[in-house]
Design a protein around this nucleic acid. Structure first.
Lengths: 203, 203
DNA sequence: CCCAATTTGGACTTGACGGTCCAGTTGCGT
DNA sequence: ACGCAACTGGACCGTCAAGTCCAAATTGGG
């Protein structure tokens, strides 16, 4: 996977980055099926051979973009993700996501989750990449909850892994409803419920 | 929307039904972008002009299929949806969905929810149709919860609409995780959390 | 049974897209 | 500054998909 030419020169690296960047934008804007290589060409000013120089084919590019997108999502949430080991930290995280949807006017949903519905069923490599992205995300919360449990802030019979999974489901579902209904409040409702469920594990 | 020739003869109606049926299958199998009119032709033995006789264009067909799919999903859940006014009824509903995913080997996700990620962002008519479908679904739960509240099984300060929305989010998110991870247990975890949240409103 | 409306068959047009190929240019180590 | 590898430009090809068009067949009411 992604076993394509790793650029040897600085110029090559820059070109590869430009392509990935544009492809990521287009994937978010027009969906997986809607992004054409000509679109990418137009946006980057790159030529056809550049695309095929740095990526095996279209699918390879899409897979690479999934990884880049995951990095972007996790990066955007920044250090919030490192403080999911307190109720206040978790609340800040939830608030951030809702605020982000308000700013986006409820468009776009989750960049990773949206791709799931588009690619999971028919492209197993992409499904694996999306799964890995979701895992990385969920791991931050799970690890935070484990730390809370160690500190005695979670009951000893609480299951951090399951709590993290249930929370991810509320996030993804809440974002989906937000996207379809163009209403950020849908995410708020889902996250309030997720919070209630987490709190059931509190000491 | 869908203002296409309503068939005047029995034969015409049958043809239109065949087309819708095949298109619904293909949409579920290959995704919204993956379904081509030629696929539909091949599966129904219909000719090109039949497609354009009964539907304005591809988008019109897709929109019609969304409605048909909603009917199918609600129909499959049958009378379970009429008994969401007791904890036992809700549990039966949850169990049914998990069981269904086990039988499907965690493939396909939610037929409606999957379409959301594919169409919501770039086809506002489709988004409206999907939203209507989700609303119809959610309404069953909301109405059940309202009946429970009337009967005093839900606290007087409980918000049936919000509880129903949060539950829908857990369902959709749980199905998404199930699909990506090919593991029906993901839905189980999400629904357990949803159940916990609902129970917080119990008297 | 006849005719007008409905339905059907399928050739054709147009355009987009993924992918290949090769020749030309640039960058970099020696 | 030389030469090889890395990089780039863009013409070209095959395929496939959406949509148009018109003529033929079928249907059903009067």
């Amino acid at each position: 996977m992604g076993n394509t030419h790793v650029p040897a020169t600085a110029k090559g690296r820059a070109t590869r980055e430009r392509i990935l960047q544009a492809a990521a934008e287009l994937l978010a804007e027009k969906g997986a099926a809607g992004m054409s290589l000509d679109d990418v060409r137009a946006r980057t000013g790159a030529s056809r051979s550049q695309l095929y120089h740095y990526f095996d084919d279209r699918d390879d590019l899409v897979r690479a973009v999934i990884d880049v997108t995951t990095d972007a999502v996790l990066g955007r949430q920044g250090e919030l993700l490192d403080h999911l080991d307190s109720w206040a930290g978790i609340d800040r995280w939830f608030d951030f996501m809702v605020q982000h949807q308000i700013e986006q006017q409820a468009r776009g949903g989750c960049p990773i989750g949206s791709l799931a519905g588009q690619l999971a069923e028919n492209d197993s490599a992409a499904r694996a990449a999306i799964g890995a992205g979701l895992d990385r995300w969920e791991a931050h919360l799970r690890d935070g909850l484990i730390r809370m449990k160690t500190r005695g802030k979670l009951r000893s019979d609480a299951d951090p892994a399951a709590l993290a999974t249930a929370t991810m489901a509320s996030i993804q579902g809440g974002l989906l409803l937000t996207q379809v209904r163009r209403d950020p409040h849908q995410l708020r409702i889902a996250l309030n419920a997720a919070r209630n469920n987490l709190r059931l594990g509190a000491t």
